[in-house]
């Protein structure tokens, strides 16, 4: 197969995505990634000479809002979704200072 994903790559991608994969899952993830790359290879066969790269799937541009405050205090909702909180803060495991 032309798109071979090494064990190191899967390990690294797992770290970046913060996924804790077991051996079985790693094998499956490798297969999935290889298939994705193959699909991209197929796309790469297309002749795109002279075609401007697209920056977005939509042809719409310039969707803006004016600089006006429209939101009030959202803290109750935000804190309601927090797994852990302390006073008015969300609480998370200690980060490296």
């Amino acid at each position: 197969m032309s798109n071979h994903i090494s064990d190191e790559t899967i390990e690294y991608v797992g770290i970046l995505a913060q996924l804790d994969l077991n051996e079985e899952e790693k094998v499956k993830a490798k297969e999935d990634m290889e298939q994705m790359l193959e699909y991209i290879d197929t796309l790469n066969e297309l002749d795109t000479e002279g075609i401007e790269p697209k920056t977005h799937i939509s042809d719409t541009t310039n969707v803006f809002r004016e600089d006006v405050v429209t939101n009030g205090d959202g803290s109750d909702d935000v804190l309601a979704n927090a797994p852990l909180k302390k006073d008015e803060y969300l609480s998370v495991p200690k980060t490296i200072g």
């Binding site: 809002r65 600089d67 006006v68 405050v69 939101n71 959202g74 803290s75 935000v78 803060y89 969300l90």
Partner: peptide, 26 residues
């Protein structure tokens, strides 16, 4: 600016914690 880059929450300093928040900026 008066508001955040992608939502209508205020950028004002000194608000109580998490009071200038909405689904977008969280």
């Amino acid at each position: 600016t008066k508001t955040k880059i992608f939502c209508g929450c205020s950028t004002e300093f000194g608000g109580a914690p998490n009071t200038h928040t909405c689904p977008v900026c969280t």
